[in-house]
């Protein structure tokens, strides 16, 4: 499979990219730090993948998105899937206190991710179809006191991706919306660890399966579908009392 990958250097993206590399996929890496991309490229190639290009792109700078996708398409020739795992995180307190940080998180996790998806969708549909896999979060399913700013960006992203899937699935674009629960990565380091927390390696196979099958929405690990079903059914007065 030929994959354009934004966010393969760290966290869940690293684990997913490794699974793809292990089966010999060709992956064009897009990201902010080209030196870091090259280190990941070496890793993926040692695991059996091939990385024909490492391309600079800053998710906070919209102008870099389209040129990066163009280079990736050119390097791969044909593209089967675009995978977006990049994103920023901020705690609720930090996002309330710091307007600049708020702007960065909302821009990276919602606005510019949407721009990446729009540009990728056009290219994939033009070429006759393909898969667009994007990491959102369970925190976008229901606002909670401790994560509604980050959650709002992810809620917006999930909403957008579901709409994209409704409109363009028939045109050949399979939109795969991944909703990870709490995953222990560098991004979540220092946060209190809730139940069902796991590591990227444990959920990467499920994400690759969702990409291969074109699953519309996938909670990873699967238990989170039921956890969120329960949380979404709680009345508002209960949510006001809860501090999680």
């Amino acid at each position: 499979m030929n994959v354009v990958f934004l966010g393969a250097t760290k966290g869940i993206g690293r684990a997913v990219a490794r699974k793809l590399a292990e089966r010999g996929d060709r992956i064009a890496l897009i990201g902010r730090d080209v030196e870091d991309l090259k280190r990941s490229a070496a890793d993926l190639e040692a695991l059996g993948g091939s990385v024909p290009a490492t391309i600079p792109c800053d998710l906070l700078d919209r102008a870099t998105i389209e040129p990066a996708l163009a280079s990736a398409w050119e390097a791969l020739g044909k593209v089967d899937a675009v995978v977006v795992t990049a994103g920023l995180f901020g705690t609720q307190d930090a996002l309330e206190a710091d307007a600049d940080m708020r702007d960065r998180v909302l821009t990276a996790d919602f606005t510019n991710t949407v721009h990446v998806c729009e540009a990728s969708a056009v290219r994939l549909i033009e070429a006759g179809g393909g898969t667009l896999c994007v990491l959102s979060s369970v925190s976008g399913d229901r606002p909670r006191k401790t994560a509604y700013l980050y959650g709002a960006a992810k809620a917006g992203l999930s909403f957008y991706l579901e709409g994209l899937d409704l409109k363009y699935r028939d045109a050949g674009l399979k939109t795969v919306l991944i909703k990870p629960g709490f995953i222990k990565t560098g991004m979540t380091e220092g946060l209190p660890v809730p139940p069902f927390a796991t590591v990227p390696e444990a959920i990467a196979p499920a994400i690759v399966r969702a990409i291969d099958r074109g699953t519309g929405v996938a909670y990873v690990p699967g238990i989170w579908r039921f956890v969120m079903l329960a949380i979404c059914s709680l009345p508002k007065f209960v949510m006001r009392k809860l501090n999680f």
């Binding site: 760290k10 690293r14 280190r39 990941s40 070496a42 890793d43 040692a46 695991l47 990565t185 560098g186």
Partner: peptide, 9 residues
């Protein structure tokens, strides 16, 4: 633990 990439082989 998270610094676990192969850099060259």
């Amino acid at each position: 633990r998270l610094a676990d990439r192969i850099l060259a082989f």
